[in-house]
Computed example of a mutant assay.
Amino acid sequence: MLDREGFRPNVGIILLNANNQVWWGKRVREHSWQFPQGGIKYGESPEQAMFRELEEETGLLPEHVKIIGRTRDWLRYEVPDHFIKREIRGHYRGQKQIWFLLRMIGRDCDVNLRASNHPEFDAWRWHEYWVPLDVVIEFKRDVYQLALQELSRYIHRNDHPATHRQRNRQNQKPSPALSTDTEQEKSE
């Protein structure tokens, strides 16, 4: 399903952990890393496509995540001809994406890269929010930068565990949730 300009509707997913690190997946049998993403099927909303792609590529279900934000408009990238199948060259130009920012509320062990019959990734890791864009395939870099930049406004500094530790050091009485975070950090 292409639009009139030759762009395929798609969703991109930036998944955060409690430390505001992003989920970063290594493409199967390749040395490239990327965020989960995938096409929007006919009749699907971007949100429905995002949850389907999330499950297919990471094994995570809606109960494992919370939607924090999404891009306001489509972000587009063109795919170089040598990456496009010969039979669709001339019609297909690239992807137009709605990007979602999610907070992981599940556990790392909930990730299952073999959730579908056609895995996209064979490894994953958490990475600092501003991922090194030089490891993303070149034609996607600008879109990644735009998505990270636009969605960064949803990340509140007060959500970061370092902020909680700083408050504790200032002799403020910690809440039970903050104490739990501190105990978990000690055990890691």
Rank of each mutant, 00 (worst) to 15 (best):
M1I: 02
L2I: 02
D3G: 09
R4A: 14
R4L: 13
R4N: 12
F7V: 05
F7P: 09
R8C: 13
R8Y: 11
N10L: 03
N10S: 14
N10Q: 09
I14P: 00
N17F: 12
A18K: 15
N19G: 09
N20W: 00
W23H: 12
R29H: 08
R29V: 06
R29T: 02
R29P: 00
H31W: 14
H31E: 15
S32M: 06
Q34F: 12
F35W: 07
F35N: 01
F35M: 04
P36F: 07
Q37H: 09
Q37L: 01
G39Q: 11
G39N: 07
I40W: 12
K41Y: 08
Y42A: 09
G43Q: 14
G43R: 15
G43L: 14
S45T: 15
S45K: 04
E47Q: 10
E47D: 01
E47V: 00
Q48H: 13
A49S: 12
A49G: 07
A49C: 11
R52H: 08
R52S: 06
E53Q: 11
T58H: 05
P62S: 07
P62W: 11
H64C: 07
K66A: 10
I68K: 06
I68E: 01
R70I: 00
T71S: 15
T71N: 03
R72F: 08
Y77L: 15
E78A: 10
V79R: 14
P80W: 07
P80F: 06
H82P: 05
I84K: 09
K85E: 11
R86P: 11
E87A: 05
R89P: 07
R89L: 11
H91C: 02
H91S: 10
H91K: 14
R93G: 12
K96F: 11
I98G: 11
I98H: 11
W99T: 05
F100A: 04
F100G: 03
L102F: 07
R103E: 13
R107P: 03
V111W: 01
L113M: 04
R114Y: 10
R114M: 15
S116K: 12
S116Q: 12
H118R: 07
P119I: 10
F121G: 11
D122F: 11
D122R: 01
A123V: 01
A123W: 00
R125W: 06
E128G: 04
W130P: 00
W130C: 02
P132C: 03
L133W: 01
D134C: 04
D134I: 03
V135P: 01
V136N: 01
D142S: 13
V143Y: 09
V143P: 03
Q145E: 07
L146R: 15
L148E: 05
Q149E: 13
E150D: 12
E150H: 09
L151H: 02
S152Y: 00
S152D: 10
Y154Q: 05
Y154P: 03
Y154H: 15
I155Q: 05
H156V: 01
R157C: 04
R157H: 12
N158T: 08
H160N: 15
P161F: 05
A162C: 00
T163V: 08
Q166C: 12
Q166K: 12
R167D: 02
N168H: 13
R169L: 15
N171I: 01
S175E: 03
S175W: 02
L178V: 14
D181H: 06
T182D: 10
K186L: 14
S187K: 14
S187D: 04
